[in-house]
Design a protein around this nucleic acid. Sequence first.
DNA 1: CTTAAAAAGCAACACGAGTTGCGATTGGAG
DNA 2: CTCCAATCGCAACTCGTGTTGCTTTTTAAG
Lengths: 196, 196
Amino acid sequence: MPVSQRPGGRSTRVRAAVLTAARGLLADGYAELTVERIAQAAGVNKTSVYRRWTDLEGVLGDLLSEYASEVVPIPDTGDLGTDLEELALLVRVGMTGEPGELITALATSAPRNRRAAQIVRGFFAERFRLAEAVVDHAIARGELPQGTDAGAAIEIIGAPFFLRLLVVNEPIDEEFARRAAAATTAALHAGVFDPK
Amino acid sequence: MPVSQRPGGRSTRVRAAVLTAARGLLADGYAELTVERIAQAAGVNKTSVYRRWTDLEGVLGDLLSEYASEVVPIPDTGDLGTDLEELALLVRVGMTGEPGELITALATSAPRNRRAAQIVRGFFAERFRLAEAVVDHAIARGELPQGTDAGAAIEIIGAPFFLRLLVVNEPIDEEFARRAAAATTAALHAGVFDPK
DNA sequence: CTTAAAAAGCAACACGAGTTGCGATTGGAG
DNA sequence: CTCCAATCGCAACTCGTGTTGCTTTTTAAG
């Protein structure tokens, strides 16, 4: 993936135009989202899009990787419950609005598109891995036993968001996020994720 | 939806042939699943499928409603933890293999297809509602306080399955199901779903 | 057994996604 | 400034999904 050397070059311009156009179209429902429409909105020929990105999913993947490069702050307040609550609230923000649409678009085309599946899995594998730090910190503080399954815990706290986003179409509000966090905290303290 | 009066009539035969063909194709990856293929496998003209079901999603909806009509036993052992664990194990079976493929297919076309969205939501709204009985029984036994949010609790126990099915592509084994149940039980006993 | 309505088959068509070949533009090296 | 390679635009084409008009078959009532 050769990133263009000159920021003002045509290639760079085309690339930026396509991505911002895609971003814009994604805002008003992605059922409308198609390669041809994006190209048109970007003032670019569809062949250029197909040649550079292969797929609609390729374009979406590039959009997602912009989010991936954003540094997400991992809460570290010194208390597991507080950390998980803040984490859940951050996840909420990251899955509402535009990024939510993007995730939905990619996740729903994942089963039909190998690359889309890789992109989504890779993205969340990384995010989940980072989030495990919250649990690891609690272990380091002695709040949780050594060998606690951080990955499993993070899976439990994250899952409800996907359910609401992809299946049930109900709003993901702060109360919902707090409840997911509280449930996970309770489970961790009850020893559900202790080493066996 | 006029259900044919004669079980051996042609309409009934066509309907059955299409549904079993769809079921068969669904087994070996639903990326291959298309109306034309189903019609061919059923020995039926594709127009018949389009006229009767409108959509591929319509066919899948009919398949799903067969599952919906199956009576699922709601565990009632007298202990919340045990009930939730058995519930989770039942959910596991219901989301692995063929029904899992079916749910995936419908859920991933939901954002692009209004009917698919309704079908999926309706199906799970009903399932979730039934599952709430487990929590309600615990309330009746005095194991949980009056006003405990059964719906929210069921959402938490169910969510991890969707995450694995639709996003992460890891196996949904019994240990996973038991952990989801244990986490929810712990959260319920810790008062996470108590009335505020 | 006759008959009219309903549903299925068949073939042709419309439509949009994605592909390909070729000429035109652009960007950077010499 | 010149030139080569990369990339883009353009237009034509393929291919599969879904639609439509019409004919044939089936079904159930009289």
